[in-house]
């Protein structure tokens, strides 16, 4: 997987030859005149407050300017060009491969690889599954954003919600709060067990040693018995973990809180709670990595191939 910055000529070519309005998702196409658009011409997404009444207007704008990056608001406004008359906002989760709390690759400093991208993809799918099964949302869209994935829900019930409700949804979906009774089979307790098990699976000894009161011998033992611990978490039988030699109640509580904090880092909660956020426009070019930001119809069958622009294929 090759990622590099696109040249101004390549941007130009992309928007002239490859960009198509058919690549815009319906949920954006149908509300285009109610959204605020933002653009980056190379010095950050500072050109905001743009409104397009039709998709043709947007098309000719993109073709003319060939921006470094293009964004659209998750909010719908009566007057998007003034950000006035807020109507509603999608519920979004930003899962960025470069910001994952635990990675099995060695990427750092904004670089991503197929491995961490795939981890981000799984997390996005997992979030969507909880939104579907627990919160009964049905209009959930996935977008590959260049360095990660966006999960965007457009169900009416969530679009009207304000910050506090959205904060609570983040807590629920990420497993960011320790439940009162972890053994309950369904509902939030199940979400929490799944998230903690997953987080623990990705944990290394080094991370464990960051926990206050964690001794090296215990950390090593925990990693050695990883499978057993994950199984215990899934069963909800935390006692078994607490009873580990050298653990003690205090360290166990610290461990649980540590895992919960890591769960919270699976997504950037600030993005979800900000109802005026702009997100990279699906169909546009991510010039930093020379990848197309695209709607992903089937998250299980996502292929990075679909996101590679022509100029990168030819160059390779």
């Amino acid at each position: 997987m090759q990622m590099r910055e696109a040249t101004p000529e390549e941007r130009k070519r992309f928007y002239a030859e490859e960009w198509s309005k058919r690549d815009l998702p319906d949920f954006i196409l149908h509300t285009i005149s109610l959204r605020e658009f933002g653009f980056d011409y190379g010095e950050g997404p500072s050109h905001r407050y743009n409104q397009f009444m039709t998709v043709e207007q947007l098309a000719s704008f993109l073709c003319n300017k060939a921006p470094y990056a293009a964004y659209a608001s998750i909010a719908l406004y009566e007057q998007p060009s003034m950000r006035k008359g807020w109507l509603k906002s999608e519920l979004v989760f930003d899962v960025d491969a470069k910001d994952l709390p635990l990675k099995s690759c060695s990427c750092s400093g904004g670089v991503v690889c197929e491995k961490c991208l795939d981890e981000a993809r799984r997390i996005a799918a997992m979030f969507a599954e909880t939104l579907r099964s627990d919160l009964n949302l049905h209009n959930i869209h996935f977008v590959y954003s260049g360095r990660g994935f966006h999960v965007r829900a457009t169900d009416d019930v969530v679009m009207a919600m304000e910050q506090t409700e959205r904060t609570q949804i983040v807590e629920y979906v990420t497993g960011g709060v320790i439940p009162a009774d972890i053994t309950i089979a369904l509902g939030y307790s199940r979400v929490f067990r799944e998230r903690v098990a997953r987080t623990f699976e990705h944990l290394g000894e080094e991370k464990l040693l960051k926990i206050r009161g964690m001794r090296k011998a215990l950390a090593q033992q925990l990693i050695k018995e990883k499978e057993k611990i994950i199984a215990a978490v899934r069963r909800g039988s935390l006692r078994e973990i607490e009873d580990f030699e050298g653990m003690g109640e205090k360290t166990f509580q610290q461990l649980l809180e540590f895992l919960t904090r890591l769960n919270m880092e699976l997504t950037d909660g600030k993005v979800t709670t900000d109802t005026k956020r702009i997100l990279r426009l699906p169909s546009s070019l991510h010039s930093g990595v020379s990848m197309k930001c695209i709607l992903v119809r089937d998250i299980e069958r996502f292929s990075i191939e679909d996101a590679i622009p022509k100029f990168m294929r030819e160059g390779a």
Binding site: S133, V157, A160
Partner: peptide, 28 residues
């Protein structure tokens, strides 16, 4: 109860989503 109906309470933290028992959109 439909969990979405509880939005005014969630907004004021008079209900906590993670304390509810929610299955298929229903809070028991």
């Amino acid at each position: 109860m439909r969990w979405g109906n509880l939005a005014p309470l969630l907004r004021h933290r008079l209900a906590e989503l993670t304390k509810l028992y929610i299955v298929d959109g229903w809070a028991v």
